[in-house]
Design a protein around this nucleic acid. Structure first.
Lengths: 196, 196, 196, 196
DNA sequence: AATGAATGAGGTTTCATTCAT
DNA sequence: GATGAATGAAACCTCATTCAT
């Protein structure tokens, strides 16, 4: 009876895990609920017991991965005073995370702008979950370190450059540890953002 | 009688046009081949006479739009001597094109990284069609004007920033003519690329 | 409540039954999966839940009927000592079976050599299911009662003559009980097989 | 203008040839008119100019091959007085023909009893074209050499044994020249037919 | 909570046939 | 006679979802 007090059922997690790898490998629409259930080792009925809808799987998956990423980032923040150094640390942590989690990284690349995720959900992820990025940008601007461009434009640019960077390291996995490329990817980002 | 001397069948083009607007409006999978044919004013059989597969429509559409964009850009290149000015002109032309072609812009945003387009096709678009960007980058590097970062990384970053910019102007259409934002979007891009 | 303890789902059997009569009446290709499902009183989805493919229906149907025939024959074998009498009994039992099961008989005639059944399946039916015929032929040869011809040739000839006989009785149903024709059909067969 | 006075157009014959090999290789229904036209090197329109219907191709093909076979047989008849020898000669000629024309032989095996050929056409082939077999049987019966069984039954049995024989030699091509098997196949047939 | 047989609307694709050139 | 683009009905099959157990 007293199964470990798992807040999320084993089966539910198994379903999310299977969905992640199948969505990445085959795409959202080419993945049937039946195949997710089979891969997860549960019955179709069980799947729909946990997720009323196929889209719910996608939305929950998207939120949970974005949240996991945000948590990882927030926990990594440690100020040293020099804002460029701080930014570099954060950027490298973000790349590290992506390289360490290839599946989730590919998921980002494919679905960050896809129509398969509800607009509301994507908006929620952007604003509330990635809110810490907004905060950092605001602080940088007030200190005159980050360029005085419209904040929304800066945020979008941030996101765009991050996706570009991890796409590059995805296509060239052997460069994941290369100092030159890692450093260059940050420099590109930072030069764009910083006040001249 | 006097049917225009169509080099590409009228019907084939009509199918591509319909597919573009439907894919953007409803998404690839929510668009049935039947609805494409109906919108194009042809029979389903005709659609499959020109495109063996629904995916072929998508791939050809992607290539033709990328090509159209590349042609537009290449024709817009005019040197004035100052490379930053040249770059700015190009960048603004690219944004103009996106704003003038909302459907194709939205198509880019949704499908540039989607699994609905064959990997080979996307690769082809990047390398052969957008080759002129690569050329520009190489020249800039040789003249010491563009930062000495790995070219592939620079290209990917370029692409990422462009997508971010048009995404911003899509979400905020009223800012499409705003000098401040247009200028800022170029500055972000340029600061990233240029040698410091 | 008390659903019969069906070993093979009722629905699956209903599908096979409907397929049998439709395939015989209209031919394999003129029979749509939709019509099979409708006749069987199930949804199309149910049909494909049990048989992944329309061809699978055909193959399973073929095997099950051949098996049913083989079972009937094996159960009918009863030796009296005189081998010709035994053979006659078997032959008449086989004709009886065909006449009693007009649908299955017609199915044999139409599909025994059709390309609508996988080669592998037809081969399986010939060798493993109709193995008892092979056994009988071998015994007869060893006792010097059946002609010393290559066994494979004998088996094929057996099959061919049986099909010819039931085709004759199908085309002339009123002769099904006629002693002269029934006897002649056996004589033809037996004279071919027996050692002279 | 004065193209060689070919009674049958080259193209029409090309269509029949292509149909023969495709029907044998893929089956009637799995063969599209488009593929027949392509293989024959003509346009679809041309195909339908010569054959109003796909079924017409099949029917004409069936008749022409049966006729060709009948012609070959009739031309081969040469009496020597001994009826068994005559029958043997004919039988071996028939087998020879089948072995020399593997495609047409396979066509016989697949379609001799198929529903893809109109009943009327099959009946016509059986009665008028194969009429010479009927004649031979009648003569043999009157001379007391062939068993006094109902003629229709004898004809059907003949046909059945012939199909069985060529199926055997199809499945075992290396035995096509083997005296033992060739002789045995005739013996089986002849023992069945002859008066005891 | 878990199962998996059942559903049926809807999707993509095929194909015999037509017809204007 | 020859061509091949165009047609549209109809086929096979998929799949998200339900529900009785």
């Amino acid at each position: 009876m007293n199964n470990a007090p798992n807040s999320i059922t084993d089966k539910k997690q198994a379903i999310l895990d299977s969905a992640l790898s199948l969505f990445v490998e085959k795409g959202f629409n080419a993945t049937s609920t039946a195949s997710i259930a089979k891969t997860a080792g549960v019955a179709t009925g069980t799947l729909f017991h946990h997720f009323p809808t196929k889209n719910d799987i996608m939305n929950q998956l998207f939120l949970s991965i974005k949240q996991e990423f945000a948590n990882h980032m927030v926990n990594s923040i440690e100020r040293c005073g020099d804002i460029e150094t701080d930014a570099n640390n954060l950027w490298q942590k973000a790349i590290d995370w992506a390289i360490a989690q290839p599946l989730k990284q590919l998921f980002f690349l494919q679905y960050s702008m896809s129509a398969d995720i509800d607009t509301a959900v994507r908006k929620q992820a952007m604003t509330s979950i990635l809110g810490f990025v907004v905060d950092l940008i605001e602080q940088g601007k007030q200190q005159g370190i980050i360029a005085d461009f419209p904040s929304e434009l800066l945020l979008e640019n941030c996101h765009g450059q991050y996706l570009a960077a991890i796409r590059f390291f995805t296509d060239n996995p052997h460069l994941g540890d290369d100092k030159i490329h890692r450093n260059a990817s940050f420099k590109l980002f930072w030069h764009a953002m910083k006040a001249q």
